[in-house]
Amino acid sequence: MGRVHKNFKVRAPDPRLAIIDERLKDVKRIFVVVSGKGGVGKSLIATTLSLILTKRGRSVGLLDLDFHGPSCHIILGTKGAMPTEEKGIIPPEVHGIKFMSVVYYVGDEPLPLRGTEISDAFTELLAITKWGRVDYLIVDAPPGMGEEVLDVIRLMERSEFLIVTTPSSLALKTVSRLTRLLLEVRAPILGVVENMRITETKLVEEHAKKFGIKYLGPILFDYNLEECFSNPKKLLGTKFARNVRDIAKKIL
């Protein structure tokens, strides 16, 4: 019997997918700040949490995933920082945080992307960004449950989700949908934060109970936040930051 040598042509998947786990391998934990709803404080919480963890001596990465409305750079104040190129892209350290955003590249230009294009941009970003050794990678998600959230679930499997809402039934309706989605795909949920509390209500606590997730406590409405943007020291001195610190204690 002669031996049969056979050659086969085979297809290969998107090469970027093969390298993402490698890029994230020295990232210990990934926290994704989500809501479903916009304007509830995701960016402010993600950025403040990053600053708090950095202050405690942890190495922190912050990824602004809101391609249509990036905000973390405004809260942080990035002043001319730019990623460097070294067999990939290395995020610059901004106030001690390894910070990555499309803002470095598009500035204030609108970035009108459709769903598949967002997914492509995100995949590319994950494939080329070299976070290195990081204790916490904080991801600031956009509103909605489109590409970004679905891709986080698909591409960053170790993600743990921090859900943000305001104590309003309007926000909670949308937040409930997102909570259901996360539970359905068995994504780990750190808990739900009640942001911008003005008067006391039990709405968010009840939401948490209903879904069997942790209520992480309130962040009070703070009138002085606007003047703290681009000034981390001042931001860390606010009541807002104090509330975020209490929340940090419960999720670490």
Binding site: V10, D14, I19, K87, I89, K130
Partner: peptide, 28 residues
């Protein structure tokens, strides 16, 4: 030099696929 990152991704993919398909040799 971000080409390097892309090359790494391509190489990983080829190796993964070859392994999955039980390739003896990767010819091209």
């Amino acid at each position: 030099m971000h080409e390097w990152a892309l090359a790494e991704a391509v190489i990983s993919t080829i190796l993964n696929v070859a392994k999955e398909k039980g390739a003896k040799k990767i010819i091209k």
